[in-house]
Design a protein around this nucleic acid. Structure first.
Lengths: 205, 205
DNA sequence: GTGATTTTGCATTGAGCGTTATAAAACACC
DNA sequence: GGTGTTTTATAACGCTCAATGCAAAATCAC
């Protein structure tokens, strides 16, 4: 409502930027490994401000996941949806995934959501649901791209969109895992050709 | 050398079993999340015994990774190497991966090594190397199976063993991530058919 | 200006962390 | 049965953790 109307001492930090910085810390250190010291230093705010703004560490974590899922993790998805040619689009998806998992601005490697799943799924309340939704949303968005091509006629009518969407997603997980383990972009690039072929191939030659 | 000759008070615990129990704790809670309390309780030993046996938490962690990589993570690999028919072998690999990532005896979900990569790669000294080696070893073992089939003539001579090995590994990562996020075995099974086809298909029909 | 309101910076809280000192306990050997 | 050796169990160590109390600082309404 009244976003400009504010009384009292003004905040010294940008909420969204602070949240993005928190993503970086959780990404590299995991949930338990991300101490308040690391978080407040990276976010550029003091702990009382953090608590006033996000409730507690747990609340900050859930917001960080939601914030990341909102757009950052979607760079490969955007590439997939933007490139007109479907094979090139899938290739762009892989390339983008490699790019951001080996050279993210925050310095973190791999995929934030994948790291969250490993560090918090099962024992950080509320995280599971958020992460499952993010996975399902990704599957759906990829499948939608394939469905679009089927409507255009560039993919056969019996093309298994959902199954191939899952395959594309799963292949990406392998890439981001390798990236997180320290394999470089040039190493990961060796996986692309076969991946593209597997995802978009049609059985009738 | 003298394994039976022992002087002094006998140990109350089985080293290997304690190590396996430690794997379970690290698996579910990550490196930082696995407290000494959780570890000692799960392992059934007191902290001084733990320190005498494994050095410290860090040393225990590295041993846990090595112990797991040694055989446990290889259940799918064994299935792949055992089944004679290559397509069935790849299918068995997937099925085994789903089985142990959704219903492991320790109660943990997903893949321990994948979780380790996410929770410790980059800031737990020595873990990166161990994990990269485990990944490369897996790639090599899978590729060896394909090479064997090429020698047998059941796969064409130009079959890209290394690339398909990486593909199989990567697809598995997607499965174990989904498992960790809470998707059930029946859900994951939907990924198998396309996965098998993608990994063993040959372009000449 | 003055008062009300909100955020900041600093210091601190009790709890839990990883780690270790200490001494009793349980064996083999002579 | 006493001695030497090793592991056990208990308790404690210093430290860092997540989370707060409090007063000064910075804005707005009037």
């Amino acid at each position: 409502m009244n976003v400009t109307k504010k009384v009292g001492r003004p905040k010294k930090f940008d909420r969204d930027q602070a949240l993005l910085n928190a993503v970086g810390v959780f990404w590299t250190h995991g949930y338990e490994g991300a101490s308040m010291k690391l978080l407040t230093e990276a976010m550029g705010i003091n702990s009382p401000s953090l608590y006033a703004e996000f409730g507690d560490k747990h609340g900050l974590y859930l917001e960080a996941i939601a914030r990341y899922a909102q757009d950052d993790g979607c760079a490969p998805l955007v590439a997939l949806e933007t490139e007109p040619d479907i094979a090139k689009a899938v290739r762009a998806f892989f390339e983008e995934a490699i790019e951001y998992s080996t050279d993210h601005e925050s310095g973190a490697r791999g995929c934030f959501l994948a790291s969250c799943v490993a560090t918090s799924a099962g024992h950080v309340e509320g995280a599971d649901t958020l992460l499952r939704e993010a996975i399902e949303t990704t599957d759906v968005r990829i499948a939608a791209r394939f469905d679009l091509e089927k409507a255009r006629g560039t993919l056969p009518k019996d093309f298994p969109s959902e199954a191939r969407a899952r395959m594309l997603f799963d292949l990406r997980q392998g890439l981001v895992l390798r990236a997180r383990a320290g394999f470089g972009a040039s190493n990961l690039a060796a996986n692309i050709d076969q991946g593209v072929a597997a995802v978009v191939h049609t059985d009738n030659p």
